[in-house]
Amino acid sequence: MAAARALINVPPKARRGEVIGIKSLISHEMETGFRPNATGQLIPRNIIKEFVCTYNGVEVFRAEFFPAVSANPFVSFTTRATESGTITMTWTGDNGFHASESVAITVE
């Protein structure tokens, strides 16, 4: 499994109750499993299947991906800033793929 590179964007500071935007991008080929190789055989599927965002350990957003999600998946969504702490994003997929990225947020 190749090391994945993830890029996430969460505002470092927010007011309590404010709705903040979260953006995430991760390197992954998202091989569909529907594509033939040079000899006509299907290249096995290799995708990220699940993306989960937790806020101080509590799940606030989850996505399930199918092969129609583009390579290097990008997802943007929102969450309400409730308290200071850590926002963690985790991606899991075929062939034991697992990547995780965390950022701190300060809520005033």
Binding site: R5, L7, I8, N9, K23, S24, L25, I26, S27, A71, N72, F74, S76
Partner: peptide, 14 residues
């Protein structure tokens, strides 16, 4: 335009 949407930034970070 948006660095978090620009997949090229994944290579820049690498």
């Amino acid at each position: 335009d948006d660095d978090t949407a620009n997949a090229g930034m994944l290579w820049v970070l690498d």
